[in-house]
């Protein structure tokens, strides 16, 4: 009968998200304001900014760890309640919409659980067969030895692989990654980025990739949001924004990235052009 509708609706739609915090001396700090974007199914969006830009606040609002003051988040056209629902089924359904991988793999895994237990906990919670755990471990490149190891027996890269597998165990539609490769060695970072590309290709999960690293965002995202002091200064297709930045702040960020023939003084000059 009717056909076109599901195609047109974005997978993740975020509209006018705002979060402020009260300051000790009165007044309010705007952590994020007017954040609006969409991500199609299987798409990849980057959120770029420096410390204090509000990018992590946005990530945490997406998964419900921070309650927005205003704005809405919807997945497949269904709005997400601003706070975690009380009912078990509603809570689990909500978890299957968006999952998250945290920055520091040293503290984002339960120290008491082995890699396999970490996955079976999530699988059991969502009523999935615990035998899926082996497939997930394999998918992220962890072997039999790692399956029985606790986090302190795993390297940084292996821990982050496990954290990704844990998020996938819920079978989410959107995966939010908050600086997920920042704490890793360069050669390991590349492995994780490749793993993420494969996962995106194989499962069709959409990525929201939060990072300070323009080169990484350039590599892994289709669209990008540049944030500064809680607001979006520029957004659009990643290639366009990075090739022809319109906002002076985006230009400053780009001028700050080391490359052949780079002079840090260029960045200092670019700084002068921003407010």
């Amino acid at each position: 009968m009717t056909t076109a509708l599901p195609q047109a609706a974005p997978l993740l739609a975020v509209d006018g998200l705002r979060k402020t915090y009260g300051l000790p001396g009165g007044g309010r700090l705007t952590a994020a304001d007017g954040i609006t974007f969409t991500v199609p199914a299987g798409g990849s969006l980057g959120i770029v900014g420096e410390s204090g830009s509000g990018k992590t606040t946005v990530a945490r609002m997406l998964v419900g760890l921070v309650r927005p003051d205003a704005g809405s988040i919807s997945v497949s056209g269904r709005p997400r309640a601003p706070r975690t629902p009380r009912g078990r089924e509603a809570r689990l359904a909500r978890a299957r919409e968006i999952q998250m991988v945290f920055q520091d793999p040293y503290v984002s895994l339960d120290p008491r659980l082995t890699a396999r237990q970490c996955l079976t906990t999530a699988l059991r919670l969502h009523g999935r067969a615990t035998t899926v755990a082996d497939g997930l471990l394999d998918q992220v490149g962890l072997g039999a030895r790692e399956a029985e190891a606790r986090p302190h027996g795993l390297s940084g890269g292996q821990r982050q692989r496990l954290a990704i597998a844990r998020a996938l165990a819920v079978d989410p539609k959107v995966l939010v990654l908050d600086e997920a490769v920042a704490a890793l060695d360069v050669s390991i970072q590349a492995q994780i980025l490749q793993l993420l590309s494969e996962i995106r290709r194989d499962t069709g999960v959409a990525l929201v990739f939060v990072s300070h690293d323009l080169a990484v965002v350039h590599h892994i995202t289709d669209e990008v949001l540049v944030m500064r002091r809680g607001t979006v200064v520029e957004q659009g297709p990643t290639a366009e924004v990075l090739a022809g930045p319109q906002d002076p702040y985006t230009r400053l960020l780009l001028a700050s990235v080391p490359r052949a023939g780079w002079d840090p003084a260029d960045a200092v000059t670019a700084r002068a052009a921003t407010a």
């Binding site: 998964v63 419900g64 760890l65 975690t84 078990r88 809570r91 689990l92 359904a93 909500r94 978890a95 299957r96 968006i98 999952q99 998250m100 945290f102 920055q103 520091d104 503290v107 984002s108 895994l109 339960d110 120290p111 008491r112 999530a122 919670l125 969502h126 954290a163 844990r166 819920v170």
Partner: peptide
């Protein structure tokens, strides 16, 4: 405050279960 506790919440686990099964044992 450690992210692994956040992760249980993001997974959809209820607060009582997180506390009893994972927070207190740690």
């Amino acid at each position: 405050r450690k992210p692994y506790i956040d992760a249980y919440g993001v997974q959809g686990m209820g607060g009582a279960r997180i506390c009893a099964r994972y927070l207190v044992p740690n």
